[in-house]
């Protein structure tokens, strides 16, 4: 059973609006929320002094806030389907509560993952300040991960929407657990892609936008058997192209098949 088309449109619009707002903040202040601040001390190589200065200029609270903003901007569009699942399987009066618990579980996993990814970013900043090399290495790692069977496993599990209890504490726990498990598979799928733009010393936002497009696209693909393959942004590109074509030109016209024995088309 599904929520109504009107409810569905409202959910989609709300989620995309939240994402758009986060992107707007990033665009308005591109260096403020997610970029690392540097000075001659932090650029002077690996030392206790440079590390202390780096943390002083980029406090943990500020890094966490920037990371959270990135998550909201980049990950929200991918939560449309699981949030709809939570809505459809919950009592109406519990929907907001269940969705909140789902998001809390999901965000908790990503914030924990952020600790590791931000650590990698700080380390690379100390070792190779203002260098593109860490981003290149991360890009290669992301490419290999992108093609690997384990990536497909994570994507497939992300399509699995668990049964949810309807009543009481069991319903709360299930919503939270669903958020956590969905977050774990999402981190497994996206960690390398997320790391890449974080390590770019320039073009950070453009990298984030490209990665978001790719992540949304691959999330729209159906689950597939495990295997090595190149996973790109084809699905979303095709959707945009097809829907644009439909709206611009109306229904496509094609010739039918020849139904004779020779069956030419």
């Amino acid at each position: 059973m599904r929520i109504s088309a009107r409810e569905s449109a409202r959910v989609n619009a709300s989620i995309l609006l939240v994402s758009a707002a986060a992107w707007a903040v990033l665009l308005v202040n591109p260096g403020g929320a997610t970029a690392l601040a540097h000075c001659p001390v932090t650029d002077s190589g690996v030392s206790a002094a440079s590390f202390r200065m780096l943390l002083a200029m980029n406090p943990v609270s500020s890094l966490a806030a920037g990371w959270a903003l990135m998550l909201v901007a980049m990950m929200s569009p991918m939560l449309v389907t699981p949030i709809r699942h939570v809505l459809e399987r919950s009592f109406k009066r519990r929907r907001a509560r269940s969705v909140t618990l789902f998001v809390v579980g999901y965000a908790a996993v990503w914030m924990a993952a952020g600790g590791v990814l931000l650590g990698a970013r700080l380390t690379s900043s100390l070792l190779m300040p203002r260098s593109y090399l860490p981003a290149v290495v991360a890009g290669v790692v992301a490419f290999v991960w992108q093609c690997a069977p384990v990536k497909q496993r994570c994507l497939n599990r992300g399509h699995r929407h668990r049964e949810l209890a309807a009543f009481g504490a069991a319903a709360d726990l299930d919503a939270l657990r669903f958020g956590v498990t969905h977050g774990v598979w999402c981190v497994g799928s996206c960690w390398a892609l997320m790391l890449f733009p974080m390590l770019l010393s320039q073009g950070h936002l453009a990298g984030m936008a490209a990665v978001t497009f790719l992540m949304v696209s691959e999330r729209l693909e159906q689950p597939r058997p495990l295997g090595w393959r190149l996973r790109g942004a084809g699905k979303l590109t095709r959707i945009v192209a097809a829907q644009t074509r439909i709206r611009l030109h109306g229904l496509l016209s094609r010739s039918g098949p020849s139904l004779s024995g020779s069956g030419s088309v």
Binding site: M1, R2, I3, S4, R6, E88, S90, A165, A166, F167
Partner: peptide, 10 residues
């Protein structure tokens, strides 16, 4: 296809 949950098993 607008629907609302009435109940479920556990």
């Amino acid at each position: 296809d607008s629907s609302e949950l009435v109940g479920s098993n556990n």
